[in-house]
């Protein structure tokens, strides 16, 4: 790991939901261009950690710093802008808008960011061949496979040129072959775009695509023993 200031860092993060302590002092840092896997069993707090780092949730205490800025202290509007412009998201079930064709689903973040429709659709169009989605632009999400849907979600996450892609169990609904294809594309395309990736997963095969893995247990990050760097 480099000694440089990380692109994103969470320090001493605590988050409670009622009486449930989801995070109990979690620490995590992400370097620019790094692919990081956050592993852990169900209920360990790994998704809560991802949501705090992405500014979706505000931690009860601790700090989240992106590019030198405290995300946890930002106003809702500032955080929303950050999520729309420099963060991208891929969720377990894609969360595509079912009424919109593939092309418009990919263009959606650009449209929400105020880009003109023609520009947004043209940008989205360019992503179809990169993710093996040629000829599917006019299909609805219900008319494509789960793996294709996740590739659409990857394109939608990257179309704005984000600095970080947050992926929460991106292969959780896929078989192993489709899951491998999705991870291969997510990692290779993100590297081409110089975007960092944080992928939350309980699957070691998915985590193996990352440069580095961190385990969350009982709301805390377990610092790994050093056994060698990424290949």
């Amino acid at each position: 790991m480099s000694e440089a200031t990380p692109l994103l860092a969470g320090r001493g993060l605590h988050k409670n939901f009622g009486l449930t302590q989801a995070l109990r002092g979690a620490d995590l840092s992400l370097e620019a261009g790094e692919v990081l896997a956050v592993m852990g069993p169900s209920g360990s707090g790994k998704s809560t950690l991802l949501h705090c780092l992405a500014g979706i949730l505000t931690p009860d205490s601790g700090e989240v710093i992106f590019n030198g800025q405290r995300i946890d202290r930002m106003l809702d509007g500032q955080r929303t802008r950050l999520r729309r412009t420099v963060f991208g998201f891929v969720f377990q079930f894609g969360q595509l808008v079912p009424e919109l064709p593939v092309l418009e689903n990919i263009a959606l973040p650009l449209l929400l960011a105020g880009k003109g429709r023609r520009v947004a659709i043209a940008a989205a169009q360019a992503w179809l061949p990169r993710l093996g989605l040629e000829g599917l632009g006019h299909r609805l999400p219900g008319e494509i496979s789960g793996g294709q849907g996740q590739r659409v979600a990857i394109a939608r996450a990257l179309v704005t040129g984000p600095r970080i892609v947050f992926a929460d169990e991106p292969t959780g609904s896929l078989d192993s072959v489709a899951g491998d294809q999705v991870m291969e594309l997510l990692v290779s395309v993100a590297k081409e775009e110089h975007a960092s990736v944080i992928v939350v997963t309980h699957e070691p095969r998915v985590a193996a695509y990352a440069d580095r893995q961190v385990t969350v247990r009982d709301g805390r990050t377990v610092q790994p023993a050093v056994v060698g760097g990424a290949p």
Binding site: R205, A207, A208, D211, Q213, T215, A225, A230, P231
Partner: peptide, 18 residues
């Protein structure tokens, strides 16, 4: 177990890259 997990993940990373 944590050290062993790291050792296993390291080999998985290498195999995935290969």
């Amino acid at each position: 177990l944590d050290a062993q997990r790291e050792a296993h993940l390291k080999v998985m990373r290498e195999l995935t890259a290969a």
